[in-house]
Simulated scan of single mutants.
Amino acid sequence: MRSRRIPRWRLLTWMILAFNLAMLLWLVIALDEAGEGGGRCAGELCRDANDLGSTVGAWLVIFFWLAGVVLLGVAWLVTHRTEQPGPRQRRGWHRH
């Protein structure tokens, strides 16, 4: 009897889930570090540079996240079998 606690998904499905969790964690950590970085700056120029770097960094993480999701999603769709292979059906005109 199978356990009902853990769904029986394909390996690629688990990889997509792990990738999304890792990217979310990376984004949260990067934004948290960016928020704390402004306290070490002494001048206005330093704070502005930190804000710009934080924005670029956050968009870079989001870009990698979206690119990875698209690639993994395409791989998931390509490897997903919806029908079991069976006898080949004839196409075209049939003679009776």
Rank of each mutant, 00 (worst) to 15 (best):
T55W: 15
L71T: 13
A34H: 04
V70Y: 03
E36D: 14
A58T: 01
W76N: 14
L31G: 08
R4N: 11
L60C: 02
T13W: 11
G39L: 08
G53A: 14
P85S: 10
R2W: 06
E83M: 00
G53E: 13
S54H: 03
Q89K: 00
V78W: 12
E44A: 11
Q84T: 02
V28K: 06
T13Q: 15
W14L: 10
G37L: 08
V78R: 15
G35Y: 05
R10S: 15
L11R: 15
L24Q: 03
G92K: 02
V74F: 03
R90Q: 13
R8P: 07
R95A: 09
N20I: 10
R47V: 15
R90Y: 06
L52N: 03
R81Q: 11
R10T: 15
V69A: 00
M1V: 06
L12F: 06
E83D: 02
R91Y: 06
I6D: 08
F63S: 13
G43E: 11
Q89Y: 00
G86I: 00
G39R: 13
Q89W: 00
E36L: 03
G39N: 12
H80W: 15
Q89S: 03
W76P: 04
I62Q: 05
W14Q: 10
G57N: 02
F19H: 08
W93N: 01
C41D: 10
M15L: 15
A18Q: 09
F63M: 08
E44L: 14
L45A: 05
G35K: 01
R47Q: 01
R88N: 01
P7D: 10
A22N: 06
S54G: 10
V78K: 14
V69E: 02
R47H: 05
W26V: 07
W65P: 04
V28A: 15
V70D: 05
R81K: 13
G53I: 09
F19C: 02
L12V: 15
V78Y: 11
W14I: 09
L12T: 14
M1S: 03
V69R: 05
N20K: 11
